[in-house]
Amino acid sequence: MRIGYYPGCSLKSSAREYEESVRALCAALDLELVEIPDWNCCGASSAHVMSADLALGLRTRNLAQAEAAGLDEVLTPCAACFSHLAEARMELADNPNKRQEVADFIGLPYSGRVRVLNVLAVLDRYRDRIAAKVKNPFRYKVACYYGCLLVRPPEVVQFDRPENPQSMDRLLEAVGAKPIPWACKTECCGASFSVTRTDVVANLSGRIVADAVKRNAAAIVVACPMCQSNLDLRRPEINQQLEQEHGIPVLYITQALGLALGIDPQQLGLQRHLVPVELPEPEPEVVTADDDDDDD
């Protein structure tokens, strides 16, 4: 299988380990990633506040390049990039005039054919294959953290349930993990305030870390470079805010699945985390006995 691939800037810089683990996992699943030729920044957190046309142009250009490369679907691991591209696609879907305007602006034809998928949507298709390939069951309690952008707004992402998403839970269950019910599944981590208002991020991300720890999760699992960065890079500030030392690691979903499939941790980029990835002993396997009640 081939699928288009839009890494975005984060996966080439601060979230290299995300790209490494995406590539390693997709290779293990025989899924060929075709990087969009000459892709550009999606506009990130700044373009859309500067100029709506610029933001739409930047986003659409990536989709147009994918079309030109003959792709039907684009895997977009970064949740923010995913949200931006999906939003552009939706904005232009029912508006041929605007579509033409943007096409003229970016100098490329654009039909709107390419679908944008996040990492969970793509992996969900391979859930059976993943379950079949498990070498080291990931037998930990995990806190599945989806953040804001993967599942919201529902009309843009057209994916999972906005309030209580299940896709990541299902994937991790397939490799033996036990997703915990917790309070912060779709709470905000503070996002790009990481730079300008670190105190806000420490507060918001602090709640997420504290709740996961309190419910005995062995790891927080994410599918967004921004979330990972806030929970991992900002851990000193978080710990200071909480006045406690929390060492719970923050894994990408691709890393957690990769470990279960027996992929080398180095290949998955685990060594790049700032909070060291030290997982405890896996929980013992629970054998459920069939009990036939026949007390007549």
């Binding site: 309030e163 209580n164 019910p181 917790w182 309070a183 709740d211 309190k214």
Partner: peptide, 14 residues
């Protein structure tokens, strides 16, 4: 109400 979750034996209604 956006969410109900359990914490310390109580149901937290947000």
């Amino acid at each position: 109400v956006s969410r109900v979750y359990e914490e310390d034996g109580k149901l937290v209604v947000k």
